[in-house]
């Protein structure tokens, strides 16, 4: 009986460990499962659509955090790359009739290739230079999209076919839900691996990282490319979810929106930005009636977070866990070793 019990806990422990490798704590799994049933629990189309948008922004923010949090490069061209993914997929569909599913992936790869090039060109420089150059490139992508009216119809906007023959949010929910979970697992896995160790080292002290044998360009470019892939992927989804694309999708203000979510969520955690999207997106949706003042609040929030709590939600959580562990250590310390 005893052996049976230990066998079971052994199995549970093993499972927990394996899931942990994918960055899935029991809480995370619980939340994901709950979220998966949301379309059946929530009848309201409006709220469901809000969830879709939260998932979209959450996924974007996770991708953003990979660069901003780990290698300390805030990619100011992020919206440009998302737009690139969106337009790639949309144009493949309208001009060549390629399925939106393949198009979405193609858009992601397009953004990744662009990210690779931008990375090779800019990541030799300090994080801030890279950020600003990426921003320039984003601006140029937007200028080109606006000007190449023959291809993109410019500011008039491009009508894009949806993934499904319906405008109801439920099927789209599951598409972005899957994209989100896969992104979450991959990013958590990457950041918990040796690759993540190299990213963190480079972001926190590039010189020390080099003396440890970490090749700065190689790992920064890998990081940046993955992050841009996520942006492109989300862009593709956006195109076939919204049904209309204008160059505005590439504007800097969307980068700032993603960035605010990522930073409120907390840098260098992946889960923080995802969680923050579910707080920030609905709140700001609710504040829509404020018009421009909504963005004023956005700006204020960003400034307040930076001044008073630059670590964001994730940091706060770690802080609480730290206190808790300290208490546990104090309580169990002498007990576990009565002879000490």
């Amino acid at each position: 009986m005893i052996s049976e019990k230990s066998l079971e806990t052994g199995f549970v422990k093993n499972l927990k460990h394996n899931l942990g490798n994918f960055g899935l704590s029991p809480v995370a799994i619980g939340l994901f499962v709950l979220l998966g049933f949301a379309p059946y629990l929530i009848g309201d189309e409006y709220i469901l659509r809000l969830l879709v948008i939260s998932l979209l922004f959450g996924t974007l923010a996770m991708g953003f955090d990979l660069s901003a949090g780990y290698i300390d490069v805030a990619n100011w061209g992020y919206a440009g790359l998302m737009g690139l993914g969106a337009y790639t997929s949309a144009l493949l569909l309208t001009n060549l009739g390629i399925s939106p599913w393949i198009g979405t992936l193609a858009g992601a790869f397009m953004a990744a290739i662009f990210g690779l090039l931008i990375g090779v060109l800019t990541l030799k420089m300090d994080g801030m230079f890279a950020a600003i150059l990426a921003w320039f490139i984003g601006l140029i992508l937007m200028a080109l999209t606006t000007s190449l009216t023959g291809l993109t119809r410019g500011a008039l906007g491009l009508n894009v076919d949806l993934y499904f023959n319906t405008g109801w949010s439920k099927p789209y929910f599951y598409v972005i839900f899957v994209i989100c979970i896969v992104t979450y697992i991959v990013l958590r896995r990457v950041t918990n691996s040796n690759l993540g160790l190299a990213f963190s080292a480079l972001g926190q002290d590039a010189e020390a990282a080099r003396t440890c044998g970490v090749d700065p360009m190689k790992y920064k470019v890998i990081n940046f490319t993955i992050s841009c892939f996520v942006a492109g992927l989300c862009g593709g989804f956006y195109a076939h979810f919204m049904g209309i694309l204008t160059p505005d999708i590439m504007s800097t203000k969307h980068t700032v929106e993603v960035l605010v979510i990522a930073y409120i969520g907390g840098r260098r955690s992946i889960w923080g930005p995802l969680l923050a999207a579910f707080l920030v997106v609905p709140v700001f949706e609710y504040l829509n009636f404020l018009m421009e003042f909504k963005y004023v609040i956005y700006g204020l929030l960003l400034i307040l977070v930076m001044i008073f709590y630059p670590g964001g939600i994730a940091h706060f959580y770690n802080y609480i866990v730290g206190i808790f562990n300290e208490k546990k250590r104090k309580l169990t310390g002498p007990e576990s070793n009565p002879f000490a």
Binding site: N194, L197, S200, Q204, D205, A208, A209, C212, G213, D215
Partner: peptide, 24 residues
């Protein structure tokens, strides 16, 4: 380094692990 350098947001163990993994 003359002024010590570390990866402040990594654990002490991970600081060393970076060098073990990427040191060659």
């Amino acid at each position: 380094f003359q002024i010590v350098r570390s990866f402040p947001k990594l654990s002490a163990l991970d600081n060393v692990k970076v060098a073990v993994v990427y040191g060659g």
